[in-house]
Design a protein around this nucleic acid. Structure first.
Lengths: 191, 191
DNA sequence: AAATGACCAAATTACTCATTTAGTCAATTA
DNA sequence: TAATTGACTAAATGAGTAATTTGGTCATTT
């Protein structure tokens, strides 16, 4: 069997998107890195966006896998959510592609990137929502709106991991878990 | 006593900033609206940014006043925080100047505007922090890091009021209060 | 049948130059 | 004489445009 051209293209595109972002990656460049004629790309992908989408879909799967691996059925719900969310958000910090896209979204607002980031957020929210519904069923947590709860959990995590360190010393993983427990699971009240 | 030129300038600038934003407001325009020579502006303000700063300082005072008025010493801490924060964020939605600046910050990233928005956020966080410290002292809430707590409360509110409605039906004021109570004050846990 | 790269219309960029702007200061006013 | 003014300047901006680059196609090659 000859070399898998589709795979070469995907790898080349991933490398280039990671290095230069979506907008600054040209199809000529991808073709050159993949050692492939430009036309070949278009036999596998309708256009640049579809190539991008396929890469992001893989990324989402990878994230889900990482989150699942970080969990453990013996853990309490809140430990599970903490580890899963932390894993997902760590992903953003560690993987070149997500870093670059995150930056491109904020700094240039490239439409294709914005779209994909929404898809990514939806995937995380959907994943969280499932876990929350399961936890309610098992009686691990109180009745609550799973959609809003997933949303609040994600926002809280993003705030603690990304927003907080824009102006303060970064919080340790343990501190974040503790804060998450204190606010979402225990509550601040004295009553 | 002759007309208060400084006040005229402040009023003219406020009007123009509200209508056109910081960048699109020219000093000539402010002078014309204020019926004042351009040079006069520079006898009261070192430059355009200082004029802007003075206006924002007033805005912050106004916000504080609005928040204080919305509170009532007979209310529980969480009702107080809810009403105060809600008032402050409503401010953003209702007042021309804040709407325009919020927009200018996101769409154009005008440096002077970015700076001032940080100042505004800091003012809100400082205000919240004070209330939290007082509540801890009075034993109304558990011990906690007032800085982080203020940060979390603000982020949660912004998420519920601004971010949520980007993709969903807006939440009612009462729903927001309920969610705030459920998550921050009561906690989700069953244990 | 699969792969290619020259080709094209459309988009983007680099550049220029006329206009606008923040801030100054000599002249004017009260 | 102290406050006010607006013509003035250097710097910044942005409209207009020419030149380049890009995504995508398709006739040709392998």
């Amino acid at each position: 069997m000859a070399i898998d051209r589709k795979q070469l293209i995907i790898e080349a595109a991933t490398k280039s998107f990671s290095l230069f972002g979506f907008k600054a990656t040209t199809m000529d460049q991808v073709a050159k890195i993949a050692n492939v004629g430009k036309g070949t790309i278009y036999t596998f992908f309708k256009n640049k966006e579809e190539l991008f989408d396929e890469i992001i879909s893989s990324l989402i799967s990878e994230m889900k896998r990482a989150a699942d691996e970080a969990m453990d059925s013996t853990l309490s719900f809140h430990e599970k959510v903490h580890r899963g969310l932390y894993q997902i958000l760590e992903f953003r910090l560690k993987h070149q592609l997500t870093i670059k896209l995150f930056q491109e979204e904020k700094e240039m607002g490239t439409p294709a990137v914005m779209e994909v980031m929404i898809k990514l957020e939806d995937a995380i929210l959907g994943y969280l929502k499932e876990k929350i519904i399961a936890a309610i069923d098992k009686g691990e947590i109180q009745e609550c709106n799973p959609e809003v709860t997933a949303f609040i959990m994600l926002k809280l995590y993003v705030a603690l991991i990304f927003d907080w360190e824009k102006r303060n010393e970064p919080l340790e993983k343990e501190e974040i878990a503790k804060l998450f427990e204190q606010y979402i699971f225990k509550g601040l009240s004295n009553r």
